[in-house]
Design a protein around this nucleic acid. Structure first.
Length: 426
RNA sequence: GGUGGGGUUCCCGAGUGGUCAAAGGGAGCAGACUGUAAAUCUGCCGGCGAAGCCUUCGGAGGUUCAAAUCCUCCCCCCACCA
């Protein structure tokens, strides 16, 4: 099966240009392809996994992925898919963010021996001179065409309008493609479906500058079945950085996937064989839940390593109960399948001054302090509504005094709602 | 630069002197039901040890017993014109 077919079957493809020629391009060995990553934050999040995974698939197929960090374009801001102008970043911040992103990509893609490249478009964009750029590059662009691009049209018609700096974004991204095609013989750019206009502009530019054929692939916008954008929760994005989103929370994010998303996510976010995923069919109840555990385990292994994934699984099992995972379910997964009572050591933990506990602290204060509720008021509500537990026993009154007497095995286990835990130690 | 419209709590959005911590919706949180899912129903949804008090309606001043609401200046956004 060709990479293109693999990607297609796994749900990575929204549109491609020149499908037959592209198939031919990828039919050769060691071809390059690139995706741009915005350095808007120092960490990538789950929303970037589709591009990352597609690069990883390319590498597995013997090609050379190029990850382009938008250190230059990040200074401008891409209007695509955004309804308002983005906050402009300082060069210093962009550089820091690019560093963080690089480290994360390395978990998914092997950068050793030039098997993959990391480039930063600041290297060629920042020093550009306006007049030469206009004369050499700008002249190839028709404003008439540009304003017809979906990304611009949306903004032109919006209340917010389109700022000139953003209007230039397309030229810069097209220029990136031209540079990579010229310097690295990279003739394929991939990106989110909102990048279609920018990618096509790049293909046109490469043709005009170099008289060469290049290609584009876009990914579908991944939404959850409930319609939400992938990777965004009310608490914010799910980050790939373990400092921002702990491996346990990351694991939990995947377990909490909507039923309808499980098979699709397994195809997109794990490397498990597609035919095993297709065999899932219409699982229900506990089995489906096990499939979610596999999804979570595999996804966590990719982002944080199998050791962290095992810890997260064990922690989840000790909180929510453990059940064996049938060996026929996604057999290629290395998830531990025994029903095991693990030790919960991935639960957030706060250690307290013994004096505080000697004296006793009001339950609602404790919940607020430890972060299980945002404010004292919220904590009171939580308790009043019966959503607070200490050592898995419901807290009856908000001013219940938590003290040493509540210590069990050297810790107090707090729980808010069904899923949020916190340990108190001294 | 001119003219007009606008900036309200996480988001959308009502509110044109007291009855406003501010309608309604969404999101969110908790409970029930479950499978750590979805849907549904119920309650909550600025802060405070909860009585009362304090902080909020772009910003700063002012009028008034009383201001999201009136006045002045400023900042920002949008539309049309230039």
């Amino acid at each position: 099966m060709s990479v293109l077919e693999t990607l297609k079957m796994r749900g990575f493809i929204d549109q491609t240009t020149h499908e037959e020629e592209l198939e031919e391009y990828l039919g050769q060995k060691g071809m390059s392809c690139y995706i741009g990553f915005d350095p808007t934050a120092s960490s990538l999040h789950v929303g970037s996994l589709v591009p990352i995974m597609s690069l990883a698939h390319m590498q597995r197929a013997g090609h050379r992925p190029i990850a382009l960090v938008g250190g230059g374009t990040g200074l401008v801001g891409d209007p695509s898919g955004k309804t308002e102008m983005r906050q402009l970043l300082t060069p210093e911040l962009v550089r820091q963010n690019a560093e963080g992103i690089k480290a994360q990509l390395a978990r998914f893609i092997d950068f050793s021996d030039d098997r993959a490249l990391m480039v930063n478009n600041a290297d060629w964009l920042v020093g550009l001179e306006y007049i030469p750029f206009l004369r050499d590059i700008g002249r190839h662009f028709s404003v008439n065409r540009m304003i017809k691009a979906e990304s611009y049209r949306m903004r032109i018609e919006s209340e917010e309008g389109l700022n000139f700096i953003e209007f230039n974004y397309m030229l810069l991204q097209a220029y990136d493609f031209y540079i990579l095609s010229r310097d690295h013989n990279c003739m394929l750019q991939m990106g989110g479906s909102d990048q279609w206009g920018n990618i096509v502009a790049g293909i046109d530019l490469v043709r005009k500058m170099e008289q060469k054929q290049s290609f584009g692939i876009t990914f579908p916008l991944i939404t959850t079945s409930s319609g939400a954008k992938m990777g965004k929760t009310a608490k914010g994005a799910i980050w790939l950085d373990s400092e921002r989103t702990s491996p346990y929370d990351y694991f939990q994010f995947w377990v909490n996937s909507d039923d309808r998303d499980v098979a699709r996510f397994l195809a997109l976010f794990t490397f498990l064989p597609i035919d095993e995923i297709n065999e899932l069919g219409n699982l229900e109840g506990a089995e489906l839940n096990s499939a979610k555990a596999v999804l979570a385990f595999e996804a966590t292994s990719l982002a944080h390593g199998s050791e962290e994934a095992e810890k997260a699984l064990a922690a989840a099992q000790s909180m929510f109960g453990s059940r064996a995972i049938p060996s026929t379910l996604l057999p290629s997964s290395s998830i531990p399948r025994e029903a095991a009572a693990g030790k919960a050591d991935s639960v957030p933990e706060t250690s307290f001054d013994p004096a505080v506990l000697e004296e006793g602290i009001a339950a609602f204060k404790l919940f607020a302090e430890v972060g299980l509720a945002n404010t004292g008021g919220a904590a009171r509500r939580l308790i009043t509504q019966g959503g607070a537990y200490i050592n898995n026993e419901r807290v009856e009154t908000f001013d219940y005094s938590v003290s040493m007497a509540d210590m069990k095995d050297g810790e107090i286990l707090l729980r808010a709602g069904k899923k949020k835990y916190h340990k108190i130690t001294i």
